[in-house]
Design a protein around this nucleic acid. Structure first.
Lengths: 250, 250
DNA sequence: CTTAGTTGGTGTACGCCGTACACCTGAAGC
DNA sequence: GCTTCAGGTGTACGGCGTACACCAACTAAG
């Protein structure tokens, strides 16, 4: 009867329960979701946890490790691979599931790509991924190169860098008249981009450069690769010409 | 006769000629080449140019714009597209040439990918790239999606994120005995990665996880994509099923 | 019940960073 | 010869990551 109220009062007075690594990581993930990775700082995170900045260092040894832990946390959310389907469907499902998970954390792509040291969850994911190919009868050799070819797409990342071919030119807040002029100038300077922008504008019946269907682009590229993998696999492709499996079979 | 020696003396006394945007950008590029992009700061760059940090702001309005300018500078180095060859060779050549140029600046990949506003040189490159596909008879529609599928690879970037499957686990400086143990543990935890590591080890007759042949991986994935593009092109692929070009032709 | 040790939060301080703002200087144009 | 103004300077501010010394509360041993 005595100690319970005491504890309760504690919790009321200073809201915070004891910190631990997991609470730190989960707070970091959701803070990054909210304010963006660029504005995530040790100090800001500490403030969120109602704690002094240096307190965090009792749970992660530095910011790099915090980021590692954050990646670890979101990668751990990815569903396990589907069982009992052919390799192609299995890969497709797994990638799309990863994509779905990682899309909830827009910062994850950049952070994942910036990590150099691979953490256990990351390695486990890649391992299970390779497992799908091997189980599908791929040689280690082919599986290896195929993983490289997949690259970031194994996480469900669409390759940035060509997002909305026209939009980036229409800067921030411009009067529409000026935007029109800029658009015309742009069409003159970059006629081929203009062609594509016009074509995709028809496609989704919206204004020029409205943006692209990310999911479509992703699946387009993914299926292109998967079909390529399948072809190589069927013809017994090998990177070692001396094996001559390709020539022998193909 | 009077003013020339005066100028000469000036140059001797304080080595620095007048700053300008171009000199700033070129200095920034070569400094980033030398010390790495993470250690490039306005202050460090200013010091390199024997100038006070704030002087830089007379030539670039802030660090973001400096980075934009740096990208602009390296992209401008890429050779113009080859003329008089079929689209496939043209694309291949252009990509490999871009790769060659950008590889001289290891930081360029990350910076290029982080830019959201596309600068003129970047747009010009993409435009000329699209031009190759259109000239090769691709529909705007197909060219569009194909550019997406190419993604970062149009700059000659190999998809990171699977660099040396084993190396990252063998941490910094470890006694070989311990490394062996770790390697065995790793083989247990990530058996499929181990299979691939072993296979590629045979391949280049080196120790496990020595690393992969970057150039090979790059060309492997590129050719896979190009072959896929070619097939789609030949069968008149369209993203709009109502056009039914695919069904009609294929 | 005391006491020593450990775990985890605190406070202060340092050296970096990008950059706002006021200032100065030397060359160019009237 | 005076003005103008582009371009280099100096100072200062608020933010960052984090080293280090400290301290509070819990645990375990005597």
């Amino acid at each position: 009867m005595e100690r319970v109220p005491e504890v309760t009062e504690k919790l009321e007075v200073d809201q915070r329960v004891r910190l631990n690594r997991d609470r730190v990581l989960r707070a970091a993930v959701s803070l990054a979701d909210d304010i963006g990775i660029d504005w995530l700082s040790m100090r800001r995170l500490a403030q969120e946890l109602r704690v002094v900045p240096m307190a965090l260092y009792k749970h992660v040894s530095n910011k790099e490790e915090l980021l590692d832990g954050m990646v670890e946390a979101v990668v751990a959310e990815i569903d396990p691979p589907a069982a009992g389907v052919d390799w192609k469907s299995a890969v497709r499902l797994r990638v799309l599931s990863a994509r779905h998970s990682l899309q909830r954390h827009p910062w994850a792509r950049r952070v994942l790509e910036s990590r150099t040291t691979k953490t256990p969850a990351v390695l486990a994911y890649m391992d299970s991924f390779i497992g799908i190919f091997l189980a599908g009868g791929f040689s280690a050799d082919l599986a290896h190169h195929v993983m490289h070819a997949l690259g970031g797409r194994m996480w469900g990342f669409t390759q940035e860098l060509f997002e909305d071919p026209a939009a980036p030119v229409g800067q921030a807040a411009m009067p529409p008249a000026i935007q029109d002029v800029t658009l015309q100038q742009m069409a003159q300077l970059y006629p081929n981009i203009a062609v594509i922008a016009a074509s995709s504008a028809h496609d989704n019946a919206s204004v020029v450069g409205q943006g692209c269907d990310d999911q479509f682009e992703f699946e387009f590229a993914l299926d292109l690769l998967l079909d390529g993998f399948e072809r190589l696999h069927r013809q017994g492709w090998s990177s070692r010409p001396r094996d001559a499996r390709q020539r022998a079979d193909g």
